[in-house]
Amino acid sequence: MRKEKLRDLSFFLSPMVLMVLLFYLVPLIMTIYISMTRMKNWNVERYLTEFVGIYNYERLFYMFQHDPTFKAVIMTTIVFVGITLMINVFGGLSLALATFFINERAASSYRLLWLLPRMSPIAVYSLVWYYFFHGSEIGTLNSILMSLGLISEPIPWGQVTPWGAWSVIIFVNGLVGVSFGMIVFTSALNQIPKELVIAARVDGASSWQISKRILIPMMKWHLLYVLTWQFLSLLTTYPHLFLLVEWDLVNRDYGTTLALYVFNTAFGRGEQDQGLAAAAAVVLSIIGVIGGFVTLKVLQFEKMMKKPRGDF
């Protein structure tokens, strides 16, 4: 029996283990190593053995301490991650529930619509919002509000600090994240035996009650999953912010999160400092891992991990 289990396990798990080893563990070790070298411009032959100890970390922390804009970066990171996370999770949940209760055709088109942000190439997606939030009369939002007579002068949305800039980056990233939650929750809802819902309906329960009493409790696991995963990815995301800042749509100080700050320092404008980038990656990873553990503890993850049935 033991031998058989071992065979089964290696059949099921070895591809994954291999991938994790090859593309996480090995690169991670290499990243840690590179973070202690002067590696730049991808010149492996030249810099791989140029060991500098913790120099890159020192440089990074020196910047954190002395950069006049760093405080804004930290504030932005906290607000950005916090609010976007809420939007992602609850927006995704609302969308999944709302589309669950309407007819399939309408539901399908809405899901497709909300998937667009995730499917768009980042540059095109940024372009859409660049024009939408542009701070002059060419901006879509400004032109609507002006023609409705709500405002008389265009509002420079992304340049109103801090909340204007924050709102734009949260909105733009929130839309991308929402679709993730929506898909996960929709799939989860589809797995719930529909007899349960029909039975509740027959008993006269409203959509709200059905959601609260039946659907959401059955999706607890998925909620936890989306929450943790989105938290971690928001912490390290920057591609959707990069162009908005680059194109001066949002204020640089309040449109830059820690991940983007680090990216710009290491790779911005012609300089390609992989040593520094690696150090930053290690720092972000540590923050991420701690953040991940805290979330898991707070959400009492242990309790939810049941022993699988069907073992003998």
């Binding site: 290499m30 990243t31 972000l284 991940g292």
Partner: peptide, 26 residues
């Protein structure tokens, strides 16, 4: 099994994009 599951979740904390330095070296 439990460790593996937590590990998988934590793996996301690694900014894939920054890990790219190591992936490139490989």
């Amino acid at each position: 099994r439990k460790i593996l599951m937590v590990l998988l979740l934590i793996l996301h904390a690694f900014p894939g994009v920054a890990l790219i330095v190591g992936v490139y070296l490989l």
